[in-house]
Amino acid sequence: MKTVEKLEEGLVGPVLRGVDADIIDAVIAAAEIDNPDREVVVEDRGGYVRVHARGRFRLTRETMERILGRPFELRELEPSLSAFAGHVETGDEEWVWRLHTAAREG
């Protein structure tokens, strides 16, 4: 994981509410496991936290459950999901954010 001061072009993934510390920590930890081929980038702005990767960012229910130690549906992200970068696809087992142009380049 690396932390950045400024958003870089081509980064995609969730932007989480700054007041939801449990979900922020869990998403960062899950992101490392669910995106083994990419560097996870975190930008903490206090009121919101970006957890991103370049071109494609994946989050799975299974990993979130393992990290949180309880049953978890991905739709439960919504109350913490203030925004996101990239196009999203929302399935039962995984949510994926991507930018086609960035994925091609990266």
Partner: peptide
């Protein structure tokens, strides 16, 4: 406005405003 100002709100210590507008934005994101 809703996330930029939420970022500043948490630094200022205005938890109420920051929590409110960042929660609103979770509806907007959908």
């Amino acid at each position: 406005q809703f996330l930029g100002m939420a970022a500043d709100a948490l630094h200022v210590g205005d938890m109420e405003f920051g929590a409110l507008i960042s929660s609103i934005q979770t509806d907007e994101a959908r």
